[in-house]
Simulated scan of single mutants.
Amino acid sequence: MSITESDTATDSNTAALSRAGVSIWLDDLSRERITSGNLQQLIAEKNVVGVTTNPTIFAAALAKGESYDEQVEEIKAKGGDVDQAIFDITTRDVRDAAEIFTEVFTASHGYDGRVSIEVSPELAHDTDATIAEAKRLWSTIDKPNVMIKIPATVEGLPAITAVIAEGISVNVTLIFSLDRYRKVIDAYLTGLEQAAAKGIDLSTIHSVASFFVSRVDTEIDKRLDAAGTDEAKALKGKSAVANARLAYEVFVEAFGTERAIELQEQGANRQRPLWASTGVKDPSLPDTFYVVDLVTHGVVNTMPEKTLDAVADHGDIKGDTIVDKYDEAREDLAKLKEAGVDLDEVTEQLEREGVEKFIVSWHELSDTVAGALGKG
């Protein structure tokens, strides 16, 4: 029995998903979830083997407030400023969550048991500041099972390389296009090569590449509706899964190259694809859609709790739903182009909006903490 398969979980839908090769991570974290035992319960009962966070998640957690009152009062008594308060609060949550996942981390030899924390989204277009903040988060939390989230912006790519080169594990976030994904993989491999040159043990470095899913359909389906034709409307709900399936094909090809194999022979780990933004926003789609249609070995699916509960309740796991679907995915994206939808334009827009949305959430988080500190 695996570390995540208790008596209540061995025959569950989430256990079936895990056996199919998908690592289930929770896309949420809060002080209350940690202290109440809820996170430990999800590990035991729903096969959760990791956690991802982002500014929106922390803004929501802090807005509830009560679980943070004691620490906020301590910071207030010391005269701490808002930025330092956010840093102290979020790194404490991530450190405590990482501690809870220690057993999973050890049992999986570092493959899972991961907790991610993101650099400030305001640094998304500042390479040097991103590198500095990633190093600060890593050294402050000081847990081997933490991953530092860096956005896959143009400026983020060299930061990914530099941080990996220091032996720091990275979750690359906000990936929407196949072209950018290829650049992310190259940044990772370059970082590994630099780490090897420094004598760093490559086996200690892990990375995931967070490929966003539902947001792609949300934007494209809006454009298909505007096109108005029956052919266009027939393509709704197909683009995101097709895009993600082809991302997995890119992953398989990239880590089968001579360059990648040479690094793996030195102990390097493959940078796993992670399906992010898997909560279904279109009520006409099944609420487990971005989970059951993206199943294959060696990927991560990070889910909001509502999606996790849906999968546990009625997720129909049918085995691999990616590897034999590449041609179908290409056809769907070709039809999209015929319908007048420019996928490159969409993914560029989504990256821009993704950074902007996280900045808005960061400001909400700042305002909440400022209010609690009496600095609002």
Score class of each variant (00 low, 15 high):
Glu122Val: 13
Lys78Ala: 14
Ser177Lys: 14
Ser36Pro: 04
Ala59Trp: 04
Ala77Gly: 06
Ile141His: 08
Leu123Gln: 07
Gln40Leu: 14
Gly37Cys: 01
Asn38Leu: 12
Val49Asp: 00
Pro158Lys: 10
Ser139Glu: 14
Pro55Asp: 07
Val48Leu: 00
Ile131Pro: 09
Arg92Gly: 09
Leu174Arg: 14
Ser36Met: 01
Phe176Asp: 13
Asn54Ala: 01
Leu137Thr: 06
Asn54Thr: 04
Thr56Tyr: 03
Ala132Ile: 08
Thr127Arg: 10
Pro158Ala: 06
Ser177Tyr: 14
Leu157Arg: 10
Asn47His: 14
Ile175Asp: 07
Glu103Arg: 13
Glu118His: 02
Phe87Ala: 05
Val51Ser: 01
Ala129Asp: 10
Ala162Phe: 02
Asp93Pro: 08
Gly79Arg: 08
Ala107Asp: 10
Gly110Gln: 08
Lys46Arg: 15
Ile160Glu: 12
Thr161Phe: 07
Gln41Val: 00
Thr153Ala: 05
Ala124Leu: 02
Gly80Gln: 05
Arg33Asp: 00
Glu166Leu: 14
Lys78Cys: 03
Ala124Arg: 03
Ile131Ser: 09
Tyr111Phe: 10
Ile75Gly: 05
Lys46Leu: 10
Thr127Gly: 07
Gln41Phe: 00
Gln41Ile: 01
Ala107Glu: 12
Asp69Tyr: 02
Thr35Asn: 07
Glu99Trp: 01
Phe105Val: 06
Glu166Ile: 13
Val146Trp: 06
Phe87His: 04
Glu155Asn: 14
Asn54Phe: 02
Asn38Pro: 00
Arg114Trp: 12
Glu74Lys: 15
Lys76Trp: 12
Gly113Val: 11
Ala77Asp: 13
Thr102Trp: 02
Pro151Met: 11
Ile34Ser: 00
Ile57Ser: 01
Asn145Leu: 04
Thr140Val: 13
Ile160Gln: 09
Ile100Lys: 03
Asn54Lys: 01
Met147Val: 04
Lys135Leu: 12
His125Gly: 06
Glu133Arg: 06
Leu174Lys: 12
Ile57Cys: 05
Ile57His: 07
Val94Cys: 02
Phe101Asn: 03
Ser108Thr: 15
Gln71Glu: 14
Asp81Gly: 05
Val94Asn: 01
Arg92His: 11
Glu66Lys: 08
Asp126His: 10
Thr161Cys: 11
Ser36Leu: 01
Gly110Arg: 12
Pro55His: 11
Gly110Ile: 11
Val170Asp: 11
Ala77Trp: 07
Ile131Asp: 11
Leu137Lys: 06
Ile43Cys: 00
Ile57Asp: 04
Ala132Leu: 09
Ala97His: 04
